[in-house]
Simulated assay, not measured.
Amino acid sequence: MTSDMTARMLRLLSLLQTRREWSGSDLAERLSVTARTVRRDVDRLRELGYPVDSARGHAGGYRLAAGTDLPPLLLDDDEAVAITVALRTAAGGLSGIEETALRALAKLEQVLPRRLRGQVTALHASLAGITWEDRGPRADPALLATLAVACRDHEVLTFDYAARHGTATARRAEPCHLVASGDLWYLLAHDTDKDDWRLFRLDRITAPTLTGRRVAPRPVPGGDAAAFVAGRLSSAPTRYRAIATVHAPAERIRARTQGLATRLRPVDDTTCLVDASDDHLSHIARILIGLDTAYTLDADPEVIDHLHETALRMLRATNRLPPA
């Protein structure tokens, strides 16, 4: 009897979430119960914290109202697949909501039925977006979801990690935070073998495995994960060095350019430094072009040559220079 009532209340909740308002008679017909039973089930939902409004009268209409807290939502199969694909896309590419989408994705994928996982993977793989520029390496949404669960549950993780020069090593770590910087995602974790904090680029992580061993969360040095990651990134070695002295206030550049939070340092009220150093020459060029203001550049010869060749191609394309 209890299981029947629970199933009926879940069905009632699902119906209330699909239409703005239901009459009592319609709900009773859908649930194969009396109008009195519908009223009792509505009262039980209210006791559980669901804000169900009712209109008096012959029809006895009901609707699920907005409340002070978001109650659990019931999704059918198609809705669950659609939301999961949307969250995977947002986590991998939309600026400003990546981390929020990632938390929601971790919750949803944890309870997603096995029968729907194949649909989600197939649909996400079939989607194609137009990219007008090389945005550099992107994180795999499935990997993001796995690491998000590991961070949330403080579960020890093993994975293979490729260094800058391609050499892969096996790692074992206690994951702490996922941090986005520009086009890249990083895992902040405590490396158990090295007994030290490490930053791992997600595009270099393969074969992540949850060990099932949970540990107490470690406090991040300094107490601020984002600030700690920013400090590590600013001192991390790169293949090519490129430092721009920009003739504009730091706040103006930060507001007009995405992904420079860890690369930007104020000099005075009218000048700032932008560290565009990177392992890829094309990425350096994209950062500098995005500044959209006057600057001077201190960079390696390879960077200067690449920028010079890029500028010549652009000038020839606009007939400002004769063909080579």
Score class of each variant (00 low, 15 high):
His58Cys: 03
Leu64Val: 02
Glu47Ser: 05
Gly24Thr: 05
Leu27Pro: 00
Arg44Thr: 06
Ala35Gln: 14
Leu73Phe: 07
Ala65Lys: 00
Arg44Ser: 12
Arg56Cys: 03
Glu29Ala: 14
Thr68Trp: 05
Trp22His: 13
Ala65Pro: 01
Arg39Phe: 10
Gly60Ser: 08
Arg46Asn: 11
Val52Pro: 06
Glu47Lys: 06
Gly49Tyr: 01
Arg44Gly: 05
Thr37His: 08
Ala66Trp: 05
Pro51Leu: 09
Ser25Thr: 15
Tyr50Ile: 06
Ser54Cys: 06
Glu21Ala: 15
Arg63Thr: 08
Pro51Glu: 00
Thr34Ala: 00
Leu70Arg: 15
Ser54Trp: 12
Gly60Gln: 05
Ala59Asn: 11
Thr37Glu: 13
Pro51Trp: 02
Gly60Lys: 11
Ser32Lys: 04
Ser23Lys: 00
Ala35Glu: 14
Asp69Cys: 08
Arg39Ser: 12
Ser32Phe: 00
Thr34Tyr: 03
Ala65Leu: 03
Asp69Thr: 12
Glu47Leu: 09
Thr37Asp: 14
Ser25Lys: 14
Leu45Pro: 00
Val33Thr: 14
Val42Trp: 04
Tyr62Val: 03
Ala59Ser: 11
Val52Trp: 08
Glu21Met: 15
Gly57Arg: 11
His58Glu: 12
Asp43Pro: 02
Asp41Asn: 08
Gly49Val: 04
Leu70Ser: 15
Pro51Thr: 15
Pro72Glu: 10
Thr37Tyr: 11
Asp43Met: 12
Ser23Arg: 01
Thr68Met: 10
Glu47Trp: 01
Pro51Phe: 02
Asp69Glu: 09
Arg46Tyr: 12
Thr34Arg: 02
Thr68Gln: 13
Leu27Ser: 01
Arg36Phe: 13
Ala35Lys: 14
Arg39Leu: 08
Gly57Tyr: 09
Ala59Met: 10
Tyr62Leu: 10
Leu27Gly: 01
Arg63Cys: 13
Arg40Ala: 06
Ser32Leu: 07
Arg56Lys: 05
Leu48Ser: 02
Ser54Phe: 10
